[in-house]
Design a protein around this nucleic acid. Structure first.
Lengths: 79, 79
DNA sequence: CAAACATATTGATAAATCTCGATATATGAA
DNA sequence: TTCATATATCGAGATTTATCAATATGTTTG
């Protein structure tokens, strides 16, 4: 969640997409976390189901970005 | 944590102490949570060690109240 | 001091979570 | 259509967490 605040600072640019408008692809997140592909895929899917992340497919890649609206609701609740 | 924001609204007055200055005793919290005595004792002890609660002993009772300073640090971090 | 009460600690078990490898599915390229 | 790549799902083991009963310790009161 922290890395996704400023993707440019934490991930390399994607080979085809020239922007981070829809976030970062699963593979890059997987590499950076050093967890297995299946683990990260499950985590990200769950986080999307929770509403914390938004997933967008571009061709074979899934891009993940923060869902700021739900995140705010949640941190407001915690506070 | 929520109950301890306004103890008067969630707990009966204590038999000896006439105020909630130091919070609420373990037994009252235990009864309200409907967890076992040992479970609640462990939880409260841990929360105190984490700095989230402040424990004060008056005779045979331990009173627990929120440690607002640390709680704020924590919610700030989460936010 | 002994009994009674409040809280703490210990040891144990069931359930949940973390994590993976193997396998399945989806998608673009050859 | 087949291959290579990206992601998803399944089944399972190891670890952690939640929770308790039993027991120990601390404290007041008779």
């Amino acid at each position: 969640m922290e890395w996704l605040k400023e993707p440019e600072k934490h991930f390399p640019p994607h080979e085809t997409l020239k922007h981070f408008n829809d976030g970062v692809c699963v593979t890059y997140i997987q590499e950076k976390t050093e967890l297995s592909q299946s683990t990260i895929s499950t985590y990200l899917t769950n986080m999307e189901k929770c509403g914390l992340l938004i997933s967008t497919r571009h061709g074979k890649w899934s891009y993940l970005k923060r869902n700021e609206e739900t995140i705010k609701q949640f941190t407001d609740f915690l506070t």
